[in-house]
């Protein structure tokens, strides 16, 4: 265990319409055993003591599963470690004297609410558009009635592991949400339960994504590299396939 000192340049913005700016803070001594969010906690405790407003940032589980946390650290959504959410990132990955620029996820579809907190309700809206199986409670057949090849179940799980953090959007040069949408469309199209609605789902979710003002996918692969859950762009290819099949061949519009 040892302490490091960092220079923090943190995006401060009072509200959605207020102008924002990078503000510089000295971190004070930071234990390398701390998580990134604990480092922000320490800063916030100090700011509070000094009567200043602490930095607002979203977080909840601090275990890398709820998808609530996230900020861009030196240009990297969730920081520089691969497959690691911001809450799971530990300070031992930084060196004494480092400067960290901490910014919110940026996209037209992600309004900044305050400091590092952004509005990601667009992700919910895309699920609302079609990211479900239309089955009411009750009346489901026995769970083992339809066997599902292990490989399909595993692949569906790979896609379903998405935590809805929005880092893919933040990392994409075009602020596209394709990886997120692709993860859901793939998850459900790989399982027989999702089949009846697969055409509708692909069309509706893509339409919603476009209407929300996310960008287009240029296959830059930045999302995959930034995704804390390692969601593969294979899912994007699958989404493209599902969408094109639906748009060209199905009766749905």
């Amino acid at each position: 265990m040892s302490d490091i000192h960092l220079t923090l340049k943190i995006w401060r913005q009072e509200g959605p319409d207020a102008p924002g700016r990078l503000q510089t803070y000295a971190s004070g001594p930071i234990s390398t055993d701390m998580s990134f969010l604990e480092m922000l906690d320490v800063l916030n405790e100090r700011l509070t003591g000094e009567g200043e407003e602490p930095v607002a940032f979203d977080h909840d589980c601090r275990e890398g599963i709820c998808g609530m946390c996230g900020a861009v650290v030196n240009g990297h959504p969730h920081g520089p470690e691969k497959e690691t959410t911001l809450c799971q990132l530990h300070m031992r990955h930084f060196k004494d004297g480092d400067t960290l620029v901490i910014e919110p996820f940026r996209a037209r579809a992600f309004r900044i609410e305050k400091d590092l907190v952004v509005d990601r309700s667009g992700l919910d809206k895309m699920i609302t558009a079609g990211g479900f199986v239309s089955v009411n409670t009750g009346g489901a057949p026995d769970a083992n009635a339809i066997p599902i090849p292990q490989k399909n179940a595993e692949e569906a799980m790979d896609a379903a592991a998405c935590i809805g953090c929005g880092a893919c959007v933040a990392a994409c040069p075009n602020a596209s949400a394709m990886l997120f949408v692709a993860a859901k469309v793939s998850h459900l199209s790989l399982l027989p339960q999702g089949h009846p609605e697969r055409a509708r789902r692909a069309l509706d979710m893509v339409r919603e994504m476009d209407e929300l003002g996310f960008g287009n996918c240029s296959n830059e692969r930045e999302c995959e590299a930034a995704c804390p859950k390692g969601i593969s762009i294979r899912n994007i290819a699958r989404l493209n396939r599902e969408f094109l099949k639906a748009a060209i061949l199905s009766d749905e519009d």
Binding site: V72, N74, E103, R106, A107, G213, G215, E220, E222
Partner: peptide, 19 residues
Amino acid sequence: ENLQARPARYSVNTAEGGR
């Protein structure tokens, strides 16, 4: 469209290793 999708740019731009 892609330009419009991110009106405010990042202060630091770093590639993740995909591009």
